[in-house]
Design a protein around this nucleic acid. Structure first.
Lengths: 224, 224
DNA sequence: GTCTATATATCGATAGAC
DNA sequence: GTCTATCGATATATAGAC
């Protein structure tokens, strides 16, 4: 048997095993996001996969191990989106607008990610802190923003007392709120923040906000 | 909570009985906020009060009844803060700034409220919707903001394509994020959003943002 | 109204065959 | 790697004396 054929043979069960794990992770993501960590049921997750509860413990060791794997996967997903924005040939204010819109679009279309972040915060990020991968990779996402802001400040168009982390916080806050607080907001004010009719104006609004804030001459002079 | 149970709890309350209920609610608020609905333990709540588990069921009927009572109490608290802002004699932009700062100050000093709102959203506001008191009273909080914005638009200082609910959402999003996502943000970026050194500049920033956005002539003309 | 003791249900995790 | 059956711990909720 050639090495090539041996690889094909050995790859088969590995591929199947990988798809089983992906299946489990898909279901677990939805289940944890919908019910919280304590509220999620391992039995329920198993019942909704093609496999059994025994396999969950075989692959992930424990409920917490499964949860951590879910968390790492959704954080890996958003990193891919953030890296996809090309801002080098844009003016600083237009670059900020594009970055804000990209974050807004990601968050409003990845409800499970936002819910998992909320859940993780309820537990004081104690699981997140265990994953060095998430911590290392996501902190670097801020460098793109740092370059854009430095350019804007250099050109005299941006105020210099608001840094990249502040801007990231503002954009994240706006985008997160639409998803994270959707249900209490709708219950009290009868407005669904994710309805189609609002999408365009709310995407434009976060861009307006961040550009107006950074180019605000009154605020910039007050900061001196 | 059923009307029958509410009668049992409210009818001819002795001072001691009332204080027992307050004691239970204080502990339950902290416990639900810290662990989520499913994660909170009735045994643990009872152990941290001066009374016993039996009394929790006597007064509140069930774990869910207790949770609902906790929710109603924290929502009643924020209504009191919102009503306390006097804006009639202020210019519209200054009134917006004061309202934003009041919301920022409330949220950053009432962590349990923000955590309970997060938890309630994980459960799609299904408990909140059961409380007509919360829904009725909190929806009216928006009228103050509506008057301020109408005045600003009338005077030609504010853009007219952003309404009171939009402004409320922006302010809430900013203030909520500081508390709700504090732990994941700190874990990844090593910045505590609630540290004293940031308080003043971040309180000023939300005011700058909302005023700059509403008085943005470029955005206002683009909306036509 | 308040206590101790306990019922009942359910969950995370595992055993052991194949 | 995959299945069925089940353990042991722990949770919500209640019984019944005083």
């Amino acid at each position: 048997m050639t090495d090539q054929l041996r690889e094909v043979r050995d790859a088969a069960p590995t591929l199947r095993a990988e798809r089983t794990q992906e299946d489990i992770l898909d279901v677990a993501t939805a289940e944890f996001a919908a019910n919280g960590y304590a509220g999620a049921r391992v039995d329920e997750i198993a019942a909704r996969t093609r496999t059994t509860k025994r396999m969950i413990y075989y692959y992930f060791g424990s409920k917490q191990g499964l949860y951590l794997a879910v968390l790492e996967r959704v954080y890996a997903q958003i990193r891919r989106v953030e890296r996809g924005v090309q801002v080098d040939e844009l003016a600083p204010d237009e670059a900020l607008r594009r970055l804000a819109e990209a974050t807004y679009d990601h968050h409003t279309t990845h409800e499970a990610f936002i819910q998992l972040v909320s859940i993780e915060n309820i537990h004081r990020a104690e699981h997140l802190r265990q994953s060095e991968t998430i911590l290392r990779e996501n902190a670097t996402a801020i460098t793109l923003l740092e370059q854009v802001i430095a350019r804007g400040v250099e050109e005299g168009r941006f105020r210099d007392d608001v840094d990249a982390l502040d801007v990231h916080m503002i954009i994240s806050a706006y985008a997160c709120f639409h998803v994270a607080n959707r249900h209490t907001f709708a219950a009290i004010f009868k407005r669904d923040l994710l309805e189609d009719a609002l999408q365009d104006s709310h995407r434009r609004l976060i861009g307006d906000m961040i550009v107006a804030t950074m180019t605000d001459r009154a605020a910039a002079s007050r900061a001196d």
